[in-house]
Computed example of a mutant assay.
Amino acid sequence: MSYKTILVSLNEVGRLEQLVAAAVSLARGTGAHVSGLYVIPSVQVYPSVGFEAAPQVFEGNRTFFKDNAARVKQAFEEAMRREALPHDFHLLDARSPVIAEEVLAVGRCADLLVVSATNPDEITGVERDFVEQVIMSAGRPVIVLPYQGSAAISLDEIIVGWNGGREAARAAFDALPLLKKARKVRIVWVDPQKEPSLRGSAAGADLAETLARHGVKAEAQGYPTDGQDEGQALLRCADDTGAGLVVMGAYGHSRLAEFIFGGATRFVLTRMSRPVLMSH
Results as ranks from 00 to 15, higher is better:
F261N: 01
A250K: 11
R108T: 12
R71K: 05
R255N: 10
A203F: 04
V8N: 06
I159V: 15
L234I: 01
C109A: 12
P177N: 11
I260Y: 13
R213E: 13
A69P: 06
A22L: 07
S137V: 02
R170P: 04
I153G: 00
V13P: 00
G36P: 00
T210P: 00
G29P: 07
R28V: 14
V131Q: 04
A32I: 03
E219C: 07
P146W: 09
V8P: 04
H280Q: 01
R81V: 14
S150W: 08
P47N: 14
R95H: 09
A27S: 12
D206T: 07
I153P: 00
E230V: 15
V134M: 00
A238M: 05
D93C: 12
E132S: 06
S9N: 13
G252W: 02
F267A: 01
S25I: 00
V13W: 03
R266Q: 15
S116M: 07
R274C: 06
H280E: 14
S9M: 09
K184N: 13
A69E: 14
N163T: 12
V160T: 10
A205E: 08
G222D: 07
G165L: 09
R128S: 13
D229Y: 01
G164E: 12
Y147H: 13
S96F: 09
E12F: 01
Y251H: 08
E127F: 07
A23S: 15
H87W: 15
K73P: 02
F130W: 03
L256G: 00
V115M: 11
A238Y: 01
G242I: 10
D156M: 09
A233D: 07
E167G: 03
D129F: 04
A171W: 10
A70G: 03
L235H: 09
S279T: 12
F259K: 13
L198T: 07
R236T: 04
P141C: 08
H90N: 05
A84T: 05
E83L: 08
E195H: 06
A94I: 12
S150E: 14
A220Q: 10
A175D: 06
E209H: 13
V72I: 03
Y3T: 01
S42D: 15
D229T: 03
